[in-house]
Nucleic acid binder design. Structure first.
Lengths: 127, 127, 127, 127
DNA sequence: GTGGTCTAGACCACA
DNA sequence: GTGGTCTAGACCACT
C-alpha cells in the first residue's frame, strides 16, 4: 500500500496538491506498481490530521488524471501505465525547468551563470 | 518615473504581486534609481485598468519592504540602497534555483542531467 | 477564542489599528495563549458592524508581525512566543514614555515636575 | 522675527502641524514676544522646501487660534497675551500627560512603575 | 492633485 | 464554513 508516512506537509502550498504530488512522485520513482492500493480516505485523513474533504479532493483529481480508480468498500487502486508515468515525469520536469529559466532570464542571468548557480545550489542542498 | 507600460498582467497570479515583482525587477535591473518617482495610485490604476485599491496594496507592501516611501499629498518615491537591490536579486535568484534543484532531485535527476535540461530549456525559450 | 466584545471603537483612529492594538493588549496582558483562535473575519466584522476588509487588513498586519497565522479554509490562530509578547509590551511602553518625555522637555519641565504631573493625571483619571 | 531654522521636519506627522507646534513652543518658551514678526508664507515655504499651501494652512490655523494676525503686504505678527501662552502650555502638557497615563494604565503599569519609567527615559534622553 | 481608510459586495481556492 | 483577492466608489487629511 502506498505510504504517506514520509510526507511532511508544508504550509505554503495547498494540502491536496501536496497529496497529489506525493502520489505522482511515488509513481515516477517506481516505488509503487499499478494495482497497488491507497489508504482509504478516512484512514489517510486521520493519519495526517487533515480534513477528509481535503483527501477526497486529492483522490478525485488523481482519478480524473487516470492514475487512480476507486471501488465500493472505499478501496482505491493505482491504475497507471508506464507511459503515463513517463508523461508525468516529463511534465513535472519541464514545468520546473521552464519556471526557473524564465525567472533567471528576467533577472538578467546568462546561460552559463544559470548553470553555475544550479550547480552551486545542488551542492549546497546535498551537504 | 518608473514605467509600467511594458507590464503584461497575467491572471494566474495576484495582480498586486505582479506589480510588486515588476518594481523589484526594475530595481535589480538598475533601470531605476533611488529617488525616482512612481506613478500615483490613481494614474497607474487607470493605465492598467485595475482598481486603485489593488495598486495601493502593492505600493503599501513595497513600502513595508523599504523600497518605497509615500507622503500624503505628495509623490511616492523609491528609497532603496544598492545593498537592498543586491539583496532582492540574491533572494529571488536563490528562491528560484533552490526550488528547481529540490524538484529535480525529487524526480531523480543527476546534477549533470539537471544542467543539461536547464541548457535545453534556455535554448528553447530563446528561440 | 479571543474576545472583542469589550472593544469600544473610537472614530479618531483607524479601525484596523484599533483591532491590532486590541490583540496586542490581550497578548501582553496574558489574557490569551499561543494557539488560541481568533474569530473569523466574517464573524468579527458582523459583531463589530465593520466591513470584512477592515478586519482582514488588521489580521494581515498581525500576521506580518508574526503574532498570527492564517490558513485558507481553516481557523486563524495566535502564534506568538513569550519573548514576542515581552517585546511588544516593551515597545509600546518605550514609545509612550519617550513621546511624553520629549514633549515635557520641549515644554521646559524638570524631571520632578514631570513626575508630579504624571502622578496627578494618574490620580485624576482613576477617580 | 520668529526663527524656523532650528526646526527639523519629521515624516510621521503632518508638516502644517509641526509648524503650528513650533510657533506654540516658541510662545510658551518665552523666546518670542507679542508683536514679533513671522516670516512671509512665501519665504518660509522656500526656506523649508515645503508647499506654500502647507505654510498657509498652518498660518491660518494660528490666526484662528488668535496667536497670529496677518496684514496686507504679507506681514504677519504674533498677537498673544501672557494668559494665552499659559493656556497653551497647560493644554499641551495635559494632552501629553493624559496620553501617556492612559497608555501606561492599559499596559498594566502601576503609578510607581510609570514614574520610574518616566525617570529612566528622562535620564536616557538627556545623555 | 496625492495618499490613506473605509464600505459594500463579489469571486475564487481551500478545508 | 474559511481566508484571499478584487472591483466600485466614497470620504478625509495633506500638499
Amino acid at each position: 500500500m502506498l505510504d504517506f508516512t514520509g510526507l511532511r506537509l508544508q504550509d505554503d502550498t495547498p494540502i491536496y496538491q501536496q497529496l497529489i504530488r506525493h502520489v505522482q512522485l511515488c509513481v515516477v520513482a517506481g516505488s509503487v506498481q499499478p494495482g497497488d492500493e491507497l489508504p482509504s480516505r478516512r484512514l489517510l485523513s486521520a493519519q495526517l490530521g487533515v480534513n477528509p474533504n481535503t483527501v477526497q479532493k486529492a483522490y478525485r483529481q488523481l482519478e480524473e488524471e487516470g492514475l487512480l480508480r476507486s471501488f465500493a468498500g472505499s478501496k482505491s487502486v493505482l491504475t497507471f501505465t508506464p507511459g503515463m508515468a513517463a508523461d508525468i515525469r516529463a511534465r513535472l520536469l519541464a514545468a520546473a525547468a521552464q519556471g526557473y529559466v524564465s525567472q533567471a532570464k528576467q533577472l538578467g542571468l546568462s546561460a552559463d551563470e544559470a548553470a553555475a548557480q544550479i550547480a552551486q545550489h545542488w551542492k549546497e542542498e546535498t551537504e
